[in-house]
């Protein structure tokens, strides 16, 4: 079917808007990458140089020479990874108990857990910092990992998932003689893989990107997580923008890889966290 001139104009405008928006959202990424590859004297060249013929990876080498970014990256990987794995297991267990098992006090426990959602992190920042200091955890992985694990949100969504899951498979396993714990680990948990994957991406990104708590809990250079590392690097290198941009590219590479590799799960997790069950 041929389109009328009016329709053609319509889709022309449509694509124009789409492309303009794409420039607004993707442009800064490209500019960051382009600047990270440039020599220092081209950073503020007038007119701006989009792709420098002198592009090289020198800035990246320089970043690793000047600050232990491999250490920051390791810290972030280790902390975000551990939090994600442990939190998912614990939340799945708790969510399963709330969805499938019958026990006295269930309603109270559930409401209590949901009520903690109303406590913003910033309100408990000071007592949490004092508590962690009291425990002697400042500048340890414990301080970065353990307080980040308990989170009502994950429990809530896993409960919702198990509530919506048909019980037949679990009942069959029960009849075959599996224990309650066995049913959870061998039947229910594997069935939860899609929702676990979506939550895993969400938890990993949230912990990789977190800034305020790592800033307070671990200020020693060796214990910095990557966001704090970027911030301190920026502070120390004032206007060496080619290095700062190289460091920023390093910091977002893992999240971008996750983003493009697991986009399906990210979109799923946003839809899920944004109210869809």
């Amino acid at each position: 079917m041929r389109k009328s001139p009016k329709q053609l104009l319509g889709s022309g405008i449509y694509y124009l808007i789409c492309i303009l928006l794409a420039v607004v959202f993707a442009g800064p990424f490209l500019w960051m990458l382009s600047s990270a590859l440039k020599p220092a004297n081209e950073i503020f060249a007038n007119p701006p140089i989009l792709i420098s013929p002198n592009s090289s990876l020198n800035n990246f080498q320089e970043v690793f020479r000047q600050a232990p970014f491999e250490r920051y990256m390791f810290n972030s990987f280790f902390v975000a990874g551990t939090v994600t794995v442990v939190a998912l297991l614990l939340h799945a267990m708790a969510g399963y108990a709330l969805a499938r098992l019958d026990f006295p006090g269930k309603r109270v426990v559930f409401i209590g857990i949901i009520a903690t959602l109303m406590i913003p992190f910033y309100t408990i920042l000071i007592p949490l910092a004092l508590l962690v200091r009291e425990l002697g955890w400042i500048n340890t992985y414990a301080a970065l990992i353990i307080p980040a694990i308990p989170h009502a949100f994950g429990i809530f969504w896993l409960r919702q998932f198990f509530l919506g899951l048909p019980t037949e498979l679990e009942e069959a396993a029960r009849i075959d003689g599996a224990s309650r714990i066995g049913v959870f680990f061998l039947v229910a948990l594997p069935l939860a893989r899609p929702v676990l994957a979506a939550l895993a991406v969400f938890f990993f990104l949230a912990n990789w990107d977190s800034f305020l708590w790592p800033l307070i809990a671990a200020n020693e250079p060796d214990m910095r997580m990557v966001q704090v590392g970027i911030q301190s690097f920026t502070g120390e290198h004032g206007s060496a923008w080619e290095l700062i941009m190289a460091a920023s590219v390093i910091a977002i590479l893992p999240t971008l890889a996750l983003f493009f590799g697991l986009q399906r799960f990210i979109v799923a997790s946003v839809k899920m966290t944004g109210l869809k069950g």
Partner: peptide, 22 residues
């Protein structure tokens, strides 16, 4: 286009702040 518009979500607010300051 959805992927492109969604990209900044994968970036931390810290890096976004640093990048825009530049």
């Amino acid at each position: 286009f959805r992927t492109i518009y969604f990209m900044p979500v994968a970036m931390s607010m810290v890096v976004a702040g640093v990048m825009w300051r530049f």
